[in-house]
Simulated scan of single mutants.
Amino acid sequence: MARRWRPEAGCGPRGALVLLALALCAPGARGRALEWYSAVVSTEYRDPRTNQTVWSVAESGRFGDSSPKEGAQGLVGVPRAADHDPEGCSPDTRFFVPPPGGGGTAPWVALVARGGCNFKDKVLVAARQNASAVVVYNEERHGNLTASMSHAGTGSIVVIMVSYPKGKEILDLVQKGISVKMTIEVGTRHVQEFISGQSVVFVAIAFITMMIISLAWLIFYYIQRFLYTGSQFGSQGIDVEAENCAVCIENFKVKDVIRILPCKHIFHRICIDPWLLDHRTCPMCKLDVIKALGYWGELEDGQEMPVPELASGSVVAADLSIAVQEDDRSDGSNSPLSSTNEPVAQCGTRFKEDSGENTALLETGRSDLQHGGPVS
């Protein structure tokens, strides 16, 4: 049987999609999950103008990455203006805590600005002065936003970040000498998944690889299809599906002499010749071979019958000349059929209108027929 080229199951766009899916599901492709907690910040102070207590609460803070997720409280202290270090980065920075919390062991909360040094240095400076918590307010350009803080190695001190407007509000009150009490509580847990830069590169490389594989597969597929189509057009139209002779039901073998009729059915020469001498039709499709080849009249005795031209194709047939000797039509005279210098079967009737069917010698095995190649 003829075999058509077929792409491998693991190749092509489907295989490329599988590759991309594996890339996306690979360990580390999704990066890591960022978990963080918001902080509920409460402030309380007495307004000196109205002598009324002003109290506010909002879930406006964010716990640092290494901070314990627990509450803290105390009076707010800020770096002294004389030290010119609002970020609290210098080891010698002193904090101002308005009374009544300016001294003793009363808990207090350090309020410092972001920048100047890393978060760990800020926290350690305040922790050395016994602050119960450190509140970092964001830069002005970030508005009401907060950000994650990495400060590993700061121990058990609570660290949160608040927005710039909130931090500036508290800072102004403390610098005016107003005592502000702050309470920090744990807020909502947040989980945010993101793709790391390394994962983005990995997925991009996988995607590019998928595209290259798909393009190469398409090019290979269409080249093979073109070659297969060309081989089909170049063939003689031989019934490549035929594996055996329909007369003797024997498989074709190497060196077998075959006849290819105009209807492209293939038989062993020694099998089909007696049939054609008696019936002149194809035993499979009943095609009148003589009419198909254009021979109508009865052959004269001793007249040579020319070999008709083969149809365009790649089957090369041996020269065929047929001669009929005059004999008594009633007796069993011999009617030799010469094809490729080999004798043919004897027939007891006169040979009439013998066809000019193709006769070929199989020089290759059955695989040539299966692949539609030329028979020589």
Rank of each mutant, 00 (worst) to 15 (best):
A246M: 09
M211E: 10
T43I: 09
S156E: 06
D327V: 13
L299R: 12
D331I: 11
R225E: 05
A292N: 14
G61A: 02
P68R: 01
A39K: 06
M182H: 00
L145F: 10
D92S: 15
T93N: 02
M284N: 13
W275A: 03
I208G: 13
R3A: 12
A360P: 01
V247S: 03
I178A: 06
S90M: 06
M149V: 07
I272D: 00
C11A: 13
V247D: 00
D273P: 02
V315P: 04
F95M: 04
V134W: 10
V78W: 07
V123M: 13
G155P: 04
L20H: 05
W36N: 08
R14T: 14
V78P: 08
H268T: 02
R80N: 07
G10Q: 10
A106L: 08
I249T: 14
T359H: 00
V134E: 09
G12A: 08
G373L: 15
E353P: 09
C347Q: 12
R114K: 01
L173Q: 05
V158G: 03
H151P: 01
S67V: 05
R269M: 12
A82G: 13
V289M: 10
Q192E: 12
R128C: 09
L75P: 02
A317V: 07
V134P: 13
T364W: 11
W108H: 02
L361S: 05
C25Y: 04
V76Y: 03
F119E: 12
V186G: 01
D288A: 08
Y45N: 02
P100L: 01
E35C: 06
A323C: 09
S330T: 13
R4L: 14
R4H: 11
R94I: 00
C271A: 06
S355N: 12
V200A: 14
Q303M: 12
R114C: 02
S60F: 00
E70R: 15
F96A: 09
T340E: 10
P7F: 10
P100N: 00
W217V: 04
E309N: 04
F267Q: 01
T105Y: 06
S42G: 06
S196Q: 05
I322W: 13
M1Y: 09
V76K: 03
A72G: 08
E353K: 15
L215D: 03
L215C: 10
V97W: 01
G12F: 08
E357W: 06
L75A: 15
Q370P: 07
F252E: 02
G143R: 03
A16V: 05
V257G: 09
N358S: 12
V123C: 13
C11T: 11
F351D: 11
